[in-house]
Amino acid sequence: MIVGQQKPLAEIWEMVRKHRKVLVLGCNSCVAVCHQGGTKQAEVLTSLLRMQATQEEAEIELVDGGIERQCEHEFFESARDAISRTDAVLSLACGVGVQFMAEKFHATPLYPALNTTFLGAVERPGFFTEKCQACGNCVLATTGGICPVSRCAKRLLNGPCGGVNKGKCEINKELDCAWCLIVNRLEALGKLDDYEDLFPLKDWSKDRAGGPRNFKVEGYLP
């Protein structure tokens, strides 16, 4: 899932304060799972912004709401009227949702309430960790199912650097060294010898480096 984190209130307020009517719109998929961007969080954020408005004696009407997903056309039907009646939308979706809406509502100012942080998993309630960088060329078959591209701070493909400390990464004591995890897992799989296979130069053209990506599924195209 896509993990996001709400921006500081002061930054959000600075973006919306000059508008007279703002729709605070949640997205009830990924970013709701991480308790940052759903309808419920939109409601709370709206209350906080109203308090801010009162303190600053700003004349601004704040309306909250939410839709299932801000990255698909069909879910916008229920919000179309509310969006057409507002001066601006504060979106609690990830960067995908904000942009998708910007393309749909060409003349409506839109602001992101979240910083989109990573593609991750729910490690335990309230704790999310990055697992994938969508490099477009999955290496997990040879790395014991643990991704060095997203989980090694240097995205090293042939083993750990010298900075491992008690199984943790030198840049952050709370971060597991991806290569320690990979080596341990290869050993558990009885494949430790595979560590010596050289990983060839990676084709990064399928990553961000190759420019914005798209994907067409033949047969489903209109």
Partner: peptide
């Protein structure tokens, strides 16, 4: 190339050298 005989994980310290030689 560099080698660190003291770094973790210890079990790949020799294999890691072999890999650098192969490279």
């Amino acid at each position: 190339a560099a080698a660190n005989p003291f770094a973790e994980p210890y079990k790949i310290r020799v294999p890691r050298l072999a890999k650098k030689i192969a490279a």
